[in-house]
């Protein structure tokens, strides 16, 4: 299937990346090139094949549900573009 300008705009919105209107046609064209390449996968017979979930046949380890970390608020906030009074600060979220 072919991606048009509107689909490109919708994908950009979903990805939370601002794309200017005049950049959309070129972006749609790039998507089409890549998706055209990916379409080859339709040639493969995948009937009855399990999708891979883990490349190594290994059970994930369990651990005790205990606190092993914490009490480092200042370290966590140190790299924030805007931190105030022990919190991350962001623009207004609710009206």
């Amino acid at each position: 299937m072919s991606i048009d300008k509107d689909t490109a705009a919708r994908v950009a919105k979903l990805a939370r990346i601002k794309v200017e209107d005049d950049a959309l046609p070129a972006l749609a064209e790039e998507f089409n090139t890549i998706l055209g390449f990916i379409e080859q996968l339709n040639e493969v017979d995948v009937e009855g094949v399990e999708p891979m979930t883990s490349v190594t046949p290994m059970r994930l380890k369990r651990r005790v549900d205990g606190v092993t970390d914490g009490d480092q608020q200042d370290k966590i906030l140190k790299n924030a573009p805007d931190a105030r009074e022990g919190f991350f600060a962001v623009p207004k979220v609710v009206e």
Binding site: K13, R16, I17, K18, I76, N79, A80, P81, D82, F88, V90, P91, K92, V93
Partner: peptide
């Protein structure tokens, strides 16, 4: 929000504009 770059916002921009 947590690290790295944050864009300079215009008046009235909300959190979605900040992400984008």
């Amino acid at each position: 929000v947590r690290y790295g770059h944050r864009a300079t916002l215009s008046a009235g921009d909300g959190i979605t504009e900040m992400y984008e």
